[in-house]
Design a protein around this nucleic acid. Structure first.
Lengths: 253, 253
DNA sequence: AGGTTGATATCGCCG
DNA sequence: CGGCGATGTCAACCT
């Protein structure tokens, strides 16, 4: 069965359905009144309340409250889930090995248990990223300034990795730090770090922050440091589909 | 009804159940074969596949594939969802105003529609954060070094906000940058930005990166810049509960 | 509304 | 595996 759902399941039904779902790589969704305990990189406790719990076949474990985009507690992919019967209560435990982290959910009342044998061979095709800004600049360097020649992309230097490294029409070395959204103080510090590193071995190094806009504070620091700003929007282009063929690879020539 | 679930709903049932759920501030969960289109800060397309869709009463909208902790597409809190009937197909549309972003889900087949009238008055009590490192240092300054005197927490300076500002036993100004996890190049750049800003108006400014560990590259840059590292783990303490009382505030004295 | 930074960030890439 | 940086980052806090 691809999908199964049981409202107000008994203990026995819960265990049976969860076992079936876990053994068949299904996505599990629970509506439950529960308590949550986490310990690992940090430590947390969440008192009783109604939440939505999702367990994915890759080990991802999400606990959502009724607001916010972020789960209140979670476990990342690769974690191992198990059902623990304790004091006549059902607990879910998810353990991650490295770093060692444990998540425990005490299910006080389960309103709904459901699972979904999901088939999905598609990947997201997204456009408007920072990487596409770099591509755009290599195709049309005059977007930065007349005479600009891009030379390297993602170039590792002494203390970090530069987005774009090139030369201007006077032969000066030029570092570009690209941001797909409004550039902030952090972006200026990053650019400064690259420029400082390059100035140790080159003279006449320019640093240009390339972004659709810049915060007031970042602009001030940028100018004090003698760095430059160039307005550029990330391009939204047609994107090739990234979907995977199911299992017909052996048919390829 | 607190919870309702319908497997293989008809068009009419879908619309009826969704309407009911949306009008009662329920959390909606769908299992569906669908396509997804997003346009806003970026633009994306996701071909047909099986996904779990969650719509929260605060407008949060999540689309999860069968792996990863992160939703493949989403809309943050405050977005407005609507049901669109088009070509005999049901589409879900979620619109955010600022920035303008739209998410559209074409429901090709819905395997399960369910909703949950969730009640939850608890908030997460978490310990082991960076803020608690600062508290710890104020309580026990010798953890940094003998004679250290912390003076300010979250102190705004010229270009940013310093975690902790204090003086050492010689009267030197000391900037602490705290990290609850392994410190990287970004952390060094951040500390350097603060130290540089303070050195414009003070002499003898020291910068100390305080973290449980540090990456090799960060250590190298830190030393070259004449900054220091102090190992300190974020403390895991007992935390007071942050749960809210339901509606008994008027009973308080 | 904009600025700044933390996060159990997660994720992807590359050495 | 560690290092490094992007993210439609999200979310909190402050001005």
């Amino acid at each position: 069965m691809k999908v199964e759902a049981k409202v107000d399941p008994s203990h026995e039904e819960m265990v049976e359905i969860l076992d079936k779902a876990l053994s068949t790589d299904a996505i599990i969704t629970l509506f439950a009144y529960c308590r949550v305990f986490y310990e690992g990189r940090a430590k947390s406790e969440l008192g009783p309340g109604d939440r939505v719990i999702i367990i994915k076949p890759d080990g991802s474990f999400l606990i959502h409250q009724k607001n916010k985009r972020e789960p209140v507690n979670w476990q990342p992919p690769g974690s191992a889930v198990s059902i623990v019967l304790e004091d006549g209560k059902i607990m879910l435990r998810s353990v991650r090995r490295k770093p060692k982290e444990t998540l425990e959910v005490e299910l006080i009342k389960t309103y709904l248990v459901s699972y979904f044998q999901a088939e999905d061979y598609e990947e997201l095709a997204l456009t408007g990223s920072e990487a596409e800004m770099a591509d755009l600049i290599f195709e049309n360097p005059s977007l930065i300034e007349e005479g600009f020649k891009p030379l390297f992309k993602e170039k590792p230097i002494k203390h970090g990795i530069v987005d774009v490294l090139g030369r201007d029409k006077h032969g000066n070395l030029v570092v570009l730090e690209l941001k797909r959204r409004r550039a902030d103080l952090h972006a200026v510090s990053q650019l400064k770090r690259y420029v400082d590193a390059l100035r140790e071995e080159h003279k006449n190094v320019r640093g240009i922050l390339v972004a659709p806009s810049i915060t007031a504070g970042a602009k001030k620091l940028l100018e004090k440091e003698g760095l430059e700003f160039k307005k550029l929007n990330p391009p939204k282009r047609e994107k090739k589909k990234k979907g995977k063929q199911k299992t017909l690879d052996f048919l390829s020539p």
